[in-house]
Design a protein around this nucleic acid. Structure first.
Lengths: 214, 214, 214, 214
DNA sequence: GATGAATGAGTATTCATTCAT
DNA sequence: AATGAATGAATACTCATTCAT
């Protein structure tokens, strides 16, 4: 298959970058590990920069799709927020190496790639923003909420997962998602919406958890 | 004073690292900007690695002291947590460049330095852990809380501030700290402790906000 | 026709080499521009070296034929020299790209090709040498002439044309040829042969000027 | 001396470039031959491009100075032209390697350097142009002369010297200069100025022939 | 004949570090 | 203490050439 070598290079680079950082890994190291040659690498990527971009793009594109789907699948902001968090946390199980590289090395993205990625990142943030805003306007979420800052708090706590999540750790990603959901809902919901029956009812396993079976 | 040049180098490096990343800045650039020479640099630092370590250490040492002081200054976990968050968030105002380097470049710390820093990082986490644990045990915090994960959520949301905080932004660091405190306390406190009178009373400006008068 | 692609490659390479130099053009660029593939290239040429050689050879072979023909067409050295200069200058109109590559890149010819080309270059020089020598011996040219050096002077002034000739320039190639002829004849002829009637009579347009009609 | 290594590098590169061409010589080869290191090279030159420029500049600057001095030293265009040719030809004795590189590799000069060099080249041509023009206007040179083209003829025949001149050859540079002068003067002077007594009188050895004693 | 994926030796350049002064 | 010339290992990237299809 035409894509074979390309995929192999991405996978190899991903793991190496995760372990040693983008600057800690040379092209030579990547191609040796991937079982190809420098020429092979440059046949598929125009530069090391581009490889970094591709890694960023794979993940952010996926994350946006998931978040949109989660939002679309429910009607009330409460449920939407739940679904988005569950989905978002779940992405870390599948794409932890991508995310690690994404957050650790974003600074070194070439400007031309950075712009593309920045737009997608903004798009992702906007999805969460809209849901929190709607929840506040509908009267389900507390009226004191500063939406901008709350969105950054949510993004921060979830994003940080890449620093500590371990597939073989004590808690599964699903449990972590539930704990985070519980934490966030307590932080944003009005007291009257806080009885378990309301919000725990939709804790179905979302699609992408089962997607990774490979 | 002997320390003068050393400080100048650290400050210069800090700002350059924040802007372009550790790998995007050469020793030459640092010494030129700092108005010294390569010899001057190596007189004060044994390597670029060491400089990176020093920057990490300055901040983490400071952050631990602050957190300990905050915890020591109050008796109830509720108040301690409030004070720690307020203190921790405030650190980003003063040490944003350090924090950016700390989170962005930790991966490139030489192992021998990494071990030292890792220990201090664990120490810092432990302080928060102890407070949340105590709050739960005392019955002020919700019993369902998974302390480990909640601590990581809190750390994540606060740490993430380095990615978006802007001294000239819409919200002051003090306002951000209040919003975060409100968010976290809603997330962890039992409903009965959630009346404003309880927890808003201690929103004193902590020491370090005034420390930076420079 | 088998030769089609080969010619296409030569023409394309010629123009690219003229513009950017042999080292400034990659095989990839040539084949892309020529609308073929690397395989297509190597089917027709054993190496980039060979392509360079072929370009050299096309021109030098042509130039020798022309010079011989010019010499054969007249009997007196005076007329022969005139005809050769006219012919030689004219070559620059048709083969400027070849000549540019010839003079600019000869140094990079592979030794095995270089030897062949060098021989032809010597052959060409010999033709002019013989004519000047004959002119001197016949008593038409000045007796003080150092034939060796004069030949190099003539070759130099004509060869240099590749550096400045422009098809769309102020002077046509035919005018340039006349000016050069006038210049050289004044330099070599004895005073008594210098009346216009003698040497301007043969300024027929030589064959190759009309050859390029395309 | 501060300039020692720099000069050594230039000299070494010059000879290597002359022999194998700019593209045929790697930085590695230069520094090995010059007895230094890559770092040493890049301490003195910002790039291989810059080295090429420096080589160009050394020669063209020198040639312009010489031509100006030659022109300034005489009053009549006839004598000026003689002096300039003598001086110009002499430059090839001293700077043959520079000139070889200059004419062979000019195409690869980085645009920013090319502009500087091109200006100096134009300045040089202008000096010769002015003298031929003046000679024509004063009535010493033939009125039929097309000054533009004649200047290119003169430049061409002299420049071409770099292709064949050999310090150990049959003719000394001074002899060559005389032969060229004789050739050119016959080509441009009116018949009445062509008696030897007029123009051979100033064939003093010009300054720069003795300058190179080092 | 033609393709283009793959090769790998070779290139210019960078940069942390050393050390004579 | 401080300088900055010199080092050389390491790096990203190029490109003529090969070869299975």
């Amino acid at each position: 298959m035409k894509t074979d070598l390309r995929s192999k290079i991405i996978q190899t680079a991903l793991l190496l970058f995760e372990e040693k950082g983008y600057h800690g890994v040379s092209i030579n190291e990547i191609v040796t590990e991937a079982g190809t040659s420098k020429g092979g690498f440059y046949h598929h990527f125009s530069s090391k920069d581009e490889l970094l971009y591709v890694i960023h793009d794979i993940f952010i594109t996926y994350a946006i799709e998931n978040a949109k789907l989660a939002a679309r699948s429910y009607e009330s902001p409460l449920e939407q927020l739940q679904a988005i968090i569950k989905s978002f946390v779940g992405v870390f199980h599948v794409y932890k190496p991508h995310l690690t590289v994404f957050y650790q090395e974003a600074k070194y993205l070439h400007p031309k790639y950075d712009e593309i990625i920045r737009k997608k990142r903004d798009e992702f943030r906007q999805i969460i923003y809209d849901v929190v805003k709607a929840g506040k306007e509908r009267g389900e979420f507390r009226q004191e909420l500063e939406v901008d800052i709350v969105v950054m708090a949510i993004l921060g706590m979830v994003n940080w997962i890449y620093k500590w999540y371990n597939r073989d750790g004590e808690k599964t990603i699903s449990q972590i998602a539930d704990i985070f959901t519980d934490f966030i809902l307590h932080a944003v919901l009005k007291a009257e919406y806080l009885d378990k029956d309301t919000y725990e009812s939709i804790l179905i396993e979302p699609f992408y958890f089962t997607k990774t079976k490979k």
